[in-house]
Design a binder for these strands. Structure first.
Lengths: 135, 135
DNA sequence: GCAGTATTTAGAACTGTTCTAAACTCCTTG
DNA sequence: CAAGGAGTTTAGAACAGTTCTAAATACTGC
């Protein structure tokens, strides 16, 4: 029986997070289907309409914890709102202005050459490529 | 006499903005030296300590107007704060986490190959590359 | 089961930004 | 070169998104 809450319970535990009812509900919404992009607000609306009441504060807490645990990746594309991406693998983003839609694209074919070395005393953390497009 | 307020007056007028005392003061701080990165808050502190009182609301207004006029470029690197860059030419950014320092690097030598075509019905607006580094 | 710690919650607080409406300033015209 | 009107500035309120607080609750190890 795939997609059962047991999967998420184990996955949360493996990430060092107690599998509470709320976290399991959120994990299920986030990870059950394909890759997704959510904001705290959008996920809160979703979890409410799924008859699994979770407070907004808990949604924020969970998103931050999932990100810290490597289950999610935070994408910063627009001032004043944070997107979280369930795809934590190497990939980049299309960002459609002004509607705020975000789409992944794989980094397989993308090559970036000629990047300068990191400033003295720092080491590379990540390279984000955001392709901004308009209608 | 280079760097005189006349330069900024003309430049603002050319951008379709009335050269008010406040806008000239801000333009001077922003454009007089080399390229800079500022936030509304940092620029407000600066203009206050330069004995040219300008309200915070006006700093926000001016930054947005300068950006809309193409005098500044907005850089989104961290959730919850906007940076403005006086360098409007092609270039990319180093972002030093967690202190929030931002450094330009030229896009001359950087080549990005293999980017997918923009989604149907959209056209390319800009490609941002943010190299995140840690101490 | 029970105790003890982690988590959740509602609401307050906070941060960064925008709005409001009254006062002021730049610019044009007469 | 005075006056009028549109554009601008201002302080403070309002707002959006996020984090904090302290009390109530739920998970886990024993």
């Amino acid at each position: 029986m795939p997609g059962t809450s047991l999967d998420f319970t184990a996955r949360l535990r493996a990430a060092g997070l107690r599998p509470t009812r709320q976290r399991v509900a959120l994990a299920r919404l986030l990870f059950e289907g394909g890759h997704r992009h959510v904001t705290a607000e959008s996920l809160h609306v979703e979890v409410k309409s799924a008859q699994m009441p979770v407070s907004l504060a808990t949604v924020y807490n969970a998103l931050n914890q999932f990100r810290d645990a490597g289950l999610l990746r935070e994408v910063v594309v627009a001032p004043g709102r944070s997107y979280f991406d369930t795809n934590t693998g190497h990939h980049h983003h299309f960002f459609v202005e002004p509607d705020g839609a975000l789409h992944d694209f794989p980094s397989d074919k993308v090559t970036i050459a000629g990047l300068p070395a990191p400033p003295k005393g720092t080491r590379l953390s990540r390279v984000d490529v955001i392709v901004r497009v308009r209608r």
